[in-house]
Write a protein that binds this DNA or RNA. Structure first.
Lengths: 187, 187
DNA sequence: GCTTTAAAGCTATGAGAGATAGCCAAGCGC
DNA sequence: GCGCTTGGCTATCTCTCATAGCTTTAAAGC
């Protein structure tokens, strides 16, 4: 039988499209194997198991998010940068709702995710720098931003809001709420 | 074989304790049947299937939440009532992290959950009444409250915050942030 | 108090998931 | 051209949920 030339990266690629198409629960080894034109056990030559594949997908998503957010805030600062970052967060989740569900809530606690998670955190930290928050205030501010972005994004991606109408407005109000909660020492 | 006297409610009862002990993924028909002292297929006499059981658990949880929140805010009003409700929300999730994961993000869109979901929404609406918000402002305010409570609770229950220390402080700041975002027409 | 009958158990069985063992061939390095 | 690593495969196991169909319990009705 001719080799199809699979690699871990290619497996993750098809896993990503499968997640997009069928949701996170649709990510099964049988489906991935089928999509790759290969029998299911062959996948184990490239990926340890399903949990491993899911982790690889999650890490890929987290990196994708960090990259997009970093470029989005580039050249911006102050309230503009914060708002842009928060909009970019929501934008990613709207564009890839199923992918977002693949990243765990506690990336920093899992070694595989830690690096990507830290990068994402650094973007938030950089954007908040103009406020010169002290250690404790900074922690609370970053947590607040995370609660708002994750809370809104997870609800929106799960269809948690009754009507899609005015969702932009709701999010803008949340951004404003967060910005005014920072000490009004805007850049 | 003597009958063990199962009912749908008793099945859901043991399902709830299983969710508490093993998490939402630990809820399997085999485990429930074992716990009930019955063979797995016997459960189908009381519950349509696993999805149905999961729904029943979710509805039970949502009702539990609505009940607890309603009694928590009883006799309170204004900012005190809002803060109490938000603290009760977090309190439930801290007490039963796995149960919280059983309720879907869009309860109002699923007929089985609709009634319990509406009750929970009514509590929030009642608590916001002193602010006399207009239709649009009310919608945005309730969404903001939901984003904050759900965002924080889901992150906390998933171990999403690095250190548990100061989490109370973070949440109190978020409550304050929300309250000050309402027009300062406090009761 | 006996008969009927709906309901609540059971065993047997199947489909489909993940996972492992072990075989075989492709194709690269020497 | 030879050998060995590597990436495929089939066969098989276990554990899910799920269904079919049988048996027995126990309550309702005469």
């Amino acid at each position: 039988m001719p080799r199809v030339g699979l690699t871990p990266d290619r497996v993750v690629d098809t896993a990503m499209t499968l997640v997009d198409e069928r949701g996170l629960d649709g990510l099964t080894l049988a489906a991935v194997a089928d999509r790759c034109g290969v029998a299911a056990p062959s996948l184990y030559k490239h990926v340890s198991n399903l949990a491993d594949l899911r982790t690889l997908v999650g890490v890929r998503v987290l990196r994708e998010m960090a990259d997009q957010f970093a470029t989005a805030v580039m050249g911006r600062s102050g309230a503009d940068a914060v708002a842009t970052l928060m909009r970019a967060y929501r934008g990613y989740v709207v564009a890839h709702p199923a992918r977002y569900a693949a990243v765990p809530a506690d990336p920093l606690h899992q070694p595989e995710y830690a690096e990507a998670g830290r990068r994402l955190l650094e973007v938030m930290g950089a954007v908040l720098r103009p406020w010169q928050l002290t250690g404790n205030d900074l922690v609370h501010a970053m947590r607040a931003a995370r609660v708002i972005t994750h809370g809104f994004a997870s609800l929106e991606s799960a269809g948690g809001f009754g009507l899609p109408q005015d969702l932009d407005e709701t999010y803008e109000r949340l951004i404003h709420m967060f910005l005014t909660s920072l000490t009004p020492q805007e850049s």
